[in-house]
């Protein structure tokens, strides 16, 4: 079952197309990274999914419910906004008490204590108005997961955290794998690569990619090899006549970057050639595309 499914979801502001014909599919239980440059439409998508904005056209289903029919589905979602805003006159504990009240939680005290401990705000007695951005972000995470919702929508959850806080938050999100669906937008590609099962890339309001990281790496594989040998010149002379070699270029003193037609064929053939030509192999590296490579390729080429 899909936790999030959109069909031609669009949002226009006057003539500006903030989100255009979005067909998003997020299966249940996955951690989904939603990527895109600034102003691509990530936050608008989240606002549409939370019924904080009305779609110009299209439909969206959350956990099987058509979101335009009723807003009851929101009770199954934990939401963290990009810049969390709270009632500044409350302390963290009072705020979580209020959230548990409106979420209809029964006997929430133990859970509140757990959450405060988890985000290290259990000893904080000051009002939220005095908190740093990082503390507010941590409180935002606590309020999002307090009622144990099956779906979390997090807008830039690690943006204001220090490296330690970021690691802890990512570990926490990763621990939900298989139990909750997490949909989070971010600019930090490393975070997505670390914990996500699937990614969606949005560019100028259009979803240009929606797939698992594994599939993406396969489909965007550049079939590129880096080898370092003792006689690079000799090897290049041999390889230039072979039809499975698409491109090659020398790197540093003894290195060669090879672009091949068929990676598996090259992996089998190259050792034979090296042995026949009596060339010593010092280094062999398969160049896998990183998420950053894919992101940049998709954003710049739209493919």
């Amino acid at each position: 079952m899909l936790a999030i499914k959109t069909e031609g979801l669009s949002k226009y502001f006057n003539n500006k197309k903030a989100v255009e014909d979005l067909n998003l599919q997020v299966p249940e239980g996955v951690i989904f990274g939603y990527l895109g440059p600034n102003g691509a439409g990530k936050t608008t998508t989240i606002r549409l999914l939370l019924s904080l904005a009305k779609p110009t056209k299209g439909r969206a289903y959350i956990l099987g419910e058509n979101i335009s029919k009723s807003r009851n589905y929101l009770k199954k979602i934990g939401f963290l906004p990009e810049v969390p805003s709270f009632y500044n006159f409350f302390t963290a504990k009072e705020f979580l008490n209020f959230i548990s009240d409106i979420s209809g939680m029964v006997k929430p005290n133990k859970k509140i204590e757990e959450m405060l401990q988890l985000v290290e705000l259990n000893k904080e007695k000051k009002r939220i108005g005095t908190y740093s951005r990082g503390m507010k972000q941590r409180l935002g995470i606590a309020q999002a997961i307090l009622s144990d919702p099956p779906l979390l929508i997090l807008d830039e959850p690690t943006s204001a955290l220090d490296p330690e806080g970021r690691k802890e938050t990512l570990d926490l999100i990763a621990s939900f794998k298989g139990q909750k669906t997490v949909f989070f937008s971010t600019h930090i590609l490393g975070d997505v690569e670390k914990i996500c099962d699937m990614v969606g890339i949005i560019k100028e309001g259009r979803l240009v990619l929606n797939d698992s990281i594994e599939n993406l790496k396969k489909s965007h594989s550049k079939r590129t090899l880096f080898i370092e040998v003792d006689k690079p010149k000799k090897l290049m002379e041999t390889l230039q006549y072979l039809n499975w070699v698409e491109e090659m270029s020398p790197v540093n003193k003894n290195g060669i970057i090879l672009q091949v037609k068929d990676l598996q064929f090259a992996q089998k053939s190259l050792p034979e050639i090296l042995s026949k030509e009596n060339i010593l192999l010092n280094k062999w590296e398969l160049k896998e595309p990183t998420l950053e490579d894919i992101f940049l390729e998709v954003v710049h080429n739209g493919n």
């Binding site: 606002r47 589905y73 929101l74």
Partner: peptide, 14 residues
């Protein structure tokens, strides 16, 4: 204006 309305509305209250 402050953003607390959207946080509360996103909790599904009427």
């Amino acid at each position: 204006n402050h953003g607390t309305a959207s946080l509360v509305a996103a909790k599904g209250i009427d």
